[in-house]
Design a binder for these strands. Structure first.
Length: 222
DNA sequence: CTCTGGATTAGCT
DNA sequence: GCTAATCCAGAGC
């Protein structure tokens, strides 16, 4: 299952269209060594937040102190705090000056599962990192790690995935009507670690080929 | 300064 | 399925 030849993803990996990055990240390994332990797992669910025209993106409406990292170089960590409890992990994408990022929504635990389970206070492996707030907690990542360089050895992603995954797309979760027409959530079909927070019926999920076609319309890239 | 709502989760009905 | 928890960023004054 683990592929050989996994290497830390270079900055160039992140310096592409955010949709390509979000899809390419599925199957890669996200690793955190923030407390001297190697924690992490396989990325199984991602979402795209792209540009000042995307009403669900934190950069909608322009630059602020919080979203500043999204305007910088790709390959850095954007962490923010929400709902009074949860940290969200994003990786900055695209070129300097264009605000965009991929939200990591779920991991399949691989490294030091016992420690991650402890941090999450659950014995259930399916509950360790099957949601964006859950995985940040399991990995020990907080806003202290805002701006960490993902090409350095503290927090990084290894790839590429050698597996052939069946990937599906759907609308993003938790954004309400803001950009609801965009199919910018991507996940590995049938992986039990994909988040269950918002159960989507089959009609709301699309094969990757169809979703990509819709995502790359002029409407989304004007 | 004050107010509003959130890229969620856990726990209960 | 429903909602309280919990606190900060951003907007408005």
């Amino acid at each position: 299952m683990l592929s050989l030849n996994m290497k830390t993803l270079p900055r160039k990996f992140y310096s592409r269209n955010t949709i390509d990055v979000a899809i390419s990240l599925l199957g890669c390994h996200f690793i955190s060594r923030v407390d001297g332990r190697k924690l992490g797992g396989m990325i199984v669910e991602t979402e795209v937040y792209r540009g000042q025209d995307d009403p669900a993106c934190h950069a909608f409406g322009g630059r602020t102190p919080r979203n500043a990292i999204m305007y910088g170089d790709p390959g850095f960590l954007y962490v923010y705090f929400t709902y009074g409890n949860h940290f969200m992990l994003n990786v900055v994408t695209e070129r300097h000056g264009f605000p965009a990022a991929v939200l990591l929504r779920a991991l399949e635990p691989i490294y030091d599962i016992e420690e991650m389970a402890r941090r999450r206070n659950t014995p259930d492996i399916l509950n360790i990192s099957s949601g964006p707030g859950k995985l940040a907690r399991a990995l020990g990542i907080t806003t202290k790690h805002y701006g960490v360089d993902l090409t350095k050895p503290q927090i990084y992603i290894e790839g590429p995935s050698a597996q052939h995954h069946h990937i599906l797309a759907s609308p993003r979760i938790g954004v309400g009507d803001r950009g609801a027409e965009k199919l910018w959530r991507f996940f590995i079909a049938d992986n039990p670690h994909v988040s269950k927070g918002s159960r989507l019926n089959r009609e709301q999920c699309y094969e990757l080929s169809a979703a990509r076609k819709m995502s790359f319309t002029a409407e989304n890239f004007k």
